[in-house]
Structures are given as structure tokens and as C-alpha cells.
Computed example of a mutant assay.
Amino acid sequence: MYLRALTIIFTLCVLGLGQVQMASATSGSAETAEGQFGEQKSAFNEAFTGYKNARDSYSTAKKELDSTKSKTRQRLLEKAKTFMLHADRSAIKYLDVLKVRVEQVNGIPEDKRSAMLAEINKDSDWLLKTQTDIEEAKSIDELRDIAKRFREHWRNYRGASKRMAGLILHEKLGVMIVRAEGASSKVSEMVVTLKSQGKDTRELEGLLSDFNEHIDIAKKKNEDARPYFESIPMAGETSSSFQEGMKLIRDAHLELKEAHSALSDISKELQLVAVEN
């Protein structure tokens, strides 16, 4: 039962990569960061493929088990060990992917970044120790006990993983909002200058108002999302908090897209007003 449960766990790992990938770096080193993320993701995919092959091999050996033959039982034990070692290594690779994201994404306060990395390193160390336990197991029953601990540990870590992914997205969106607010301030200064020159800025002011409204809504939704992510327990089953937080993040992102569209209209209007007699 516990060995079969690992299949479900690592399917969740693969799906989890999609959430982590959303939190991409936005600085000048983004290309380098994406390259590092891609390398870690490829390593995880390779490890996950090895895990699936080992799982299938173990399942085949289990079907062929003859309880009266010690050699057959020994072969099953070795297949089970290989299966679980691949599962353990896949989990470590998954954490490596998450670690790169936490290290590279902009906007996370350093104390929070350090706390996230410490949590990831702690789980990686636990998984490394578990590899030794697997290798030293003398029976299928011992492996079942290890698989049970593994399942419970990874189920607990799901909360920490989603909490981190959500907070990374929140901080990244916050950086984008700050940049948008900076653009708004610059446009406001231009409006004042043009107005002092006797230019008609009514259309420009209307567009700027729309732009600011989208930014304000995005900022509010992003701020509202944070408590949902922070309320996700670091251990145990996750609640609906992650989904609620992600809905707000998606809504905030859509508002920023609308703001970007409004900024394009502002740019065009600025050019028209500037050449106006």
C-alpha cells in the first residue's frame, strides 16, 4: 500500500513544477536564471523517468513472487529498494527545482528567502538520510515502514511547497506593481509639464486615471492574496487557501495586463499632445 502511494506523490511533484515555473525571475539575469531552472527541471524529469521504470520493474517482480523461494524474495527486495531509491532521488531533484526558484526570483525579503531555503535544505537532508535507510533495509516489511514515513513526510511537505510557491508569486507580482507605480509617477510629471505649456491634457488625464485604477486593483488583490498563502500550514494536508490565493493572483495579473494596455494608449496620446500647437 505504502509503496503504491509513492506513485501518487510523484505525480503531484510533476504537477507542482507548473506552479513553481510561474514564478520566473524578472531581472537582467533572467536568462541565466531560466537556464539554471531548466537544468534542474531536466534533472528532475530524468530522475522521475528512472523512478517510473524502477516502479514498473518492481511491480513485475512482485507479480512473479513465489513465497517459497528465498531467491525470488531477495530479488523482490532489491527491486523494491531500487524503486524507492529512485523515488527518493526524484524528490530531491524536485526540491532542487524549487530551490533555484527561491534563489533567483526578485522581490523576496532576504530573511524570508533564507527561511525558505533552510526549509528546503532540511527536507533534502532528510531525504538523503532516508536513502541510507533504504539501502540498509533487510526486508520488505522494513521498506514498507520506510515508505510509510516517506509518504507522511512528503504529504506534510506539500503545504510548505505550496506556501513557498504562492509567496514567490506574490512577491514577484509586487515588484511588477512597484514598477507600474513608478511609470504612473513619471506620466503624472509629464502631464503637469504639458499642462503648464498650455496643452490639452484631458484625454491624457483620463487614460492615466484608468491606468492607476488597474494598478490599485492589482495591488489590492495581490495584498489580499498574501494572507491566504501564509495561512497554508507548513505540515499536514493543504486547505483551499492556495486556490483562493491563486485566484487573487491571477485576477491581479489580469489587471496589470489591462494597465499595460492603458500605458500603451498613454504613450500614443503623449506623442499627439507633445506635437500639438
Score class of each variant (00 low, 15 high):
residue 206 G to L: 13
residue 245 G to M: 03
residue 265 D to T: 08
residue 244 E to L: 12
residue 229 F to Q: 07
residue 220 K to S: 11
residue 255 E to S: 05
residue 208 L to G: 04
residue 265 D to C: 03
residue 206 G to S: 13
residue 229 F to C: 00
residue 256 L to N: 05
residue 264 S to I: 10
residue 213 E to K: 08
residue 262 A to G: 09
residue 212 N to D: 15
residue 247 K to L: 10
residue 219 K to H: 05
residue 231 S to I: 11
residue 226 R to G: 05
residue 214 H to K: 12
residue 244 E to A: 12
residue 249 I to M: 13
residue 208 L to C: 09
residue 256 L to R: 08
residue 213 E to W: 02
residue 228 Y to R: 04
residue 233 P to W: 05
residue 234 M to R: 15
residue 211 F to C: 02
residue 252 A to L: 05
residue 213 E to V: 00
residue 227 P to F: 04
residue 208 L to E: 07
residue 227 P to G: 08
residue 206 G to E: 13
residue 251 D to R: 01
residue 239 S to M: 02
residue 247 K to G: 09
residue 232 I to S: 05
residue 205 E to D: 14
residue 234 M to K: 15
residue 225 A to F: 03
residue 211 F to Q: 05
residue 249 I to T: 12
residue 217 I to C: 02
residue 223 E to A: 11
residue 256 L to F: 03
residue 228 Y to Q: 07
residue 220 K to G: 04
residue 244 E to P: 01
residue 256 L to Q: 02
residue 223 E to C: 00
residue 210 D to Q: 08
residue 208 L to D: 03
residue 216 D to Y: 10
residue 260 H to V: 02
residue 243 Q to F: 08
residue 244 E to I: 10
residue 226 R to C: 01
residue 209 S to Q: 09
residue 238 T to Y: 00
residue 256 L to A: 06
residue 235 A to C: 10
residue 217 I to G: 01
residue 250 R to G: 06
residue 235 A to D: 14
residue 235 A to H: 12
residue 230 E to G: 09
residue 247 K to A: 14
residue 255 E to W: 02
residue 244 E to C: 06
residue 233 P to H: 05
residue 205 E to R: 12
residue 205 E to Q: 15
residue 256 L to C: 06
residue 262 A to V: 08
residue 237 E to K: 14
residue 208 L to K: 02
residue 239 S to W: 05
residue 243 Q to K: 13
residue 248 L to W: 00
residue 240 S to K: 08
residue 231 S to H: 11
residue 208 L to T: 04
residue 244 E to N: 14
residue 207 L to P: 06
residue 258 E to R: 10
residue 232 I to H: 01
residue 236 G to D: 06
